[in-house]
Each structure stands twice: as C-alpha cells, then as structure tokens.
Write a protein that binds this DNA or RNA. Structure first.
Lengths: 236, 236
DNA sequence: CTAATCATAGGTAGAATTATGCAGATCTGG
DNA sequence: CCAGATCTGCATAATTCTACCTATGATTAG
C-alpha cells in the first residue's frame, strides 16, 4: 500500500520524460464511481482525466469539445446509454477511442457495443489493473476485451452463426417502443406517445420479443435495461 | 492534486497518534467501485477497510466475522439487497453501524432503509467528502443523511402522513412474488415455483400493485429493483 | 428497376393479466 | 382466548397482451 503510494508519486515526477499523458473522459452517473476511477487512473500516472460527466448527452458534448484520447462510458446512463453515446462519439470525435464499462457479462451486449464502434468492453467487476491495461491497449490502437469477455467473443466469432444470426439489432422505431415498455407504459400509452395505433405497437412488440428472445414485456424491459438498449427508467 | 497526495501520505504517517482507525466493510458487486471507495477512504486516513465483499450474503457473514465499525452497503446486490443485509447485520453484529449506498433518490427507499436499521443513507452521486463526513458522523453515533436526502426525509416527517401512511411495506410472501415478477416470470411460473395457485398469485399481485402505487407488473418490477426491494435479475 | 427492409395498420383468436369479492386457515400480540 | 393481520384459494368479468395473418406505402440496396 505504501509502496503503491510511493510508486504513484514517483511516476508523477517522471511525467515529463514520458510521452504525453493519455487524456480521458469519464462518463458515469455515479459521482463516487467517477471519483474512484479518477483516483485510480491519476495515481497510476500517465493518465489525465480531462472531463467528468454524468450522462450520455454530456459525454458526447464533452468528447466533441475536449477530444480526449479515451472515453470511458458506463452503459447505464440517463438521457443516452453508453452504447448510444459511443455511436455518436465516433462520429463527433473520430480520434477518441471508446471503452464501454458495464456490470453485465452479456455476450449480446458486447456485440452491440462493438457494432456501435466501441474499442473495448470492460466489466465493472474487473480489477483496476485490468482497466489500466485495457485503456493502454486501446490507446495503442488495439481493441481490448477483458479476459473472459475476450474469450466469449472469440468463441462467438468462431461459431460464426452467433455473430451474424443474432444480428437482431432493433430498429430505431423498435427502440423507441422498447424504451417506453421499460418505463412501464402499456400499449395504449405507447401508442399515444408515439402517435401510433395500438395494433402497430402490439405488432412491433411481438417482433421485439422475438429479437430479444423473450416472451413478455416485463422480460423485454429487464433485458433492455441490462443491455443498455434503452436508458434506465429514471424514477417512478 | 499533489497536495492531496502529500496530504494522504502525511496522514498515514500520523496514524499511530490518532485514535484507532475506523474499520470498514465495503459491500458492492462492482469490483471497480469497491476499489475506488477503498482508495478514497484509505488515502484520506483514519479508515481501515477490513473486508470487501460482492453480495449481500457475504456482507452479513463478513460483518459477523470482522465486526467492522461501519458497513457500507450498496442497495443493489445479488443474493441479498443492501437493505436486507442491513436488517440481518444489525442482528448479527449489533456494534456495526450500517450505511446504505444507492443511486436512487427515492423517499420510500430511504424509509425502507431506516426501518431496516440503517444508520445512514447516501446517494452514489454524492461527493466523496460527503461520504467521508457521513461515515465519521455515523461512527460518532449520529444518524447521517446526506444533504438532499436529509431534507426530504425531514419533509416527510413533517407531513406526518407520509411516514405512517406509506408503511406499505410488503410482507415476506409478497416480496417473494415480487422478486419473481422482477425476473420476468408470469403468474403460472410464479405459482409453480412457490407452490401456489395462479389465482393466489394474481390476488397477491393486485395488492402489491396497490402498495407500490403502480398498475402493472412491469412497473412493479422496475420499482422493485430501483427500491432494492428485491435483488436485481442477474442475467437473462 | 427489383428485391428487401421498414413502418404502418387492420383482423382474429387465444392466453394472460387485473380488479373485486368472498372465505377458511394460520399466526401473533395482548 | 381474542382481534387483527396474513396467507391461501376460488370465482367472475373486463381488459390487456401476444401470436399470427395480411397488406400498403416508403425507403434502400443491389
């Protein structure tokens, strides 16, 4: 522990001879988590947290303004999920590489994130050294997937079918509907809010269920939130 | 930043003359978050993290074995929610004071936690200095509620009715059912798993909806997870 | 241009959900 | 032991949901 502290101080003094520190944007809706991450990164040395934001929209804006080398994006954020944010950040700030943070070890979420242009996918119960290593790897231009995640994705790539078949990506409209389902709206409410007929909502929903591999709306809501397909319901 | 680092080192050297460090148990299912918390607490000085666990059951066991002065409990944990863990910890280790961490600013959750015997209730988007202050206050024997939370609870206490009326605490059986709803089970599946008739499940559900102030099972599932009434669905 | 996909919406039929009311069994605190 | 709360089960009816079918117009890719 002391060694660690000394180590960090030492590293700090050696900043100048090192190459530029890696600039980082942290996006997570929990202040404590952000501060913890910042501590870990800055004490380690070689990293410079240039922005901290608490929702997806702010993340995109900050990425555009600060063009950080790395954007650490939590999946579950208000306004815009980490995955959506990543999608927009690769447009808004192409030099920024994105790392998705999540608590769910879900293969399909990984693919969803990678398709959105994310360069890495890390579980929140990964060790902080794994995080550091992943950030460095991504900064070097490698696409990093933490330990177990990497194995799973490779497995899926090997099986082949998994990568193409469950390309069950929801369409934009389907996501609209799913987002309302995940807020507890019934079909009538959804139809009203989206100016659709209840029939259409019901039909869409059936397709969504198929794509998500579930059989009812409650399961769909759970999956949607867990996979970061829609922003989590803020408060009821 | 440098000052901060020196400060922490200094504090560490001064450990001995200080009163005993406050022993702390951290329970959260995200390793990164735990490590961040630990960093923040240990660098600040005066705190000693004696155990880190990732689920509610382990939290209760650790509290029993290490009898920490403070248990920092995340609400949303596998196996056992932070609130349930607090309930059991006050039994298993009466000298341990519990601090509930959550991301939801929900008045009813606050009450739920306080009723379970928690000594403090902190939002995860609180500042780390607030956390430190709260932990110290709780250790001094005070019941701490972070800024806005305190105000809200006081408001509710003032209104009076809120404290007694929404004593809509669910019964044990109702929680059982709600937990399955929050996993996406339909009434038939619930009836099977709990050895009940579908009718009974339906009846219970209607009462649960009333108590939670919702109108359908999806909303109930959302509320249940957000309030920490049931452990979140692990993976679907 | 053609084929494919998407968004829309209508229909039917069956399954599930939800709101109520009633009632016996059990348990618990006073 | 009593009173009250809880758990259980049954019934009914209205509502909602879900699966599956068809079909039209718009957009898009090849």
């Amino acid at each position: 522990m002391l060694a660690c502290c000394f180590g960090s101080v030492t590293t700090k003094w050696l900043h100048k001879p090192m190459s530029e520190p890696i600039t980082i944007l942290i996006a997570d809706d929990h202040t404590m988590f952000r501060q913890g991450l910042r501590e870990i990164l800055e004490r380690k040395g070689g990293f410079s947290v240039v922005a901290e934001v608490s929702d997806g929209v702010a993340a995109v804006e900050a990425a555009q303004r600060f063009t950080p080398a790395i954007a650490l994006l939590d999946i579950s954020m208000p306004e815009l999920t980490g995955i959506e944010a990543a999608r927009q950040i690769v447009q808004a700030s192409p030099t920024t590489r994105t790392v998705i943070l999540t608590m769910h070890r879900d293969e399909r979420t990984v693919l969803e994130a990678l398709r959105a242009g994310a360069n890495a996918y890390l579980l929140k119960d990964a060790d902080s050294t794994e995080l550091i290593e992943a950030v460095r790897a991504v900064h070097r231009g490698e696409a990093a997937l933490a330990g177990s995640a990497a194995a799973r994705v490779l497995d899926m790539l090997r099986r082949g079918d998994s990568v193409t078949a469950p390309a069950d990506l929801l369409t934009a409209r389907e996501r609209d509907i799913l987002a309302l389902v995940a807020q507890g709206d019934d079909n009538r409410a959804i139809a009203l809010k989206l100016s659709l007929s209840e029939k259409t909502v019901g039909n869409r929903l059936s397709e969504i269920f198929q794509k998500l591999g579930v059989t009812n709306r409650t399961q769909a809501a759970i999956v949607a939130v867990q996979r970061g397909l829609v922003p989590p319901p803020s408060a009821l």
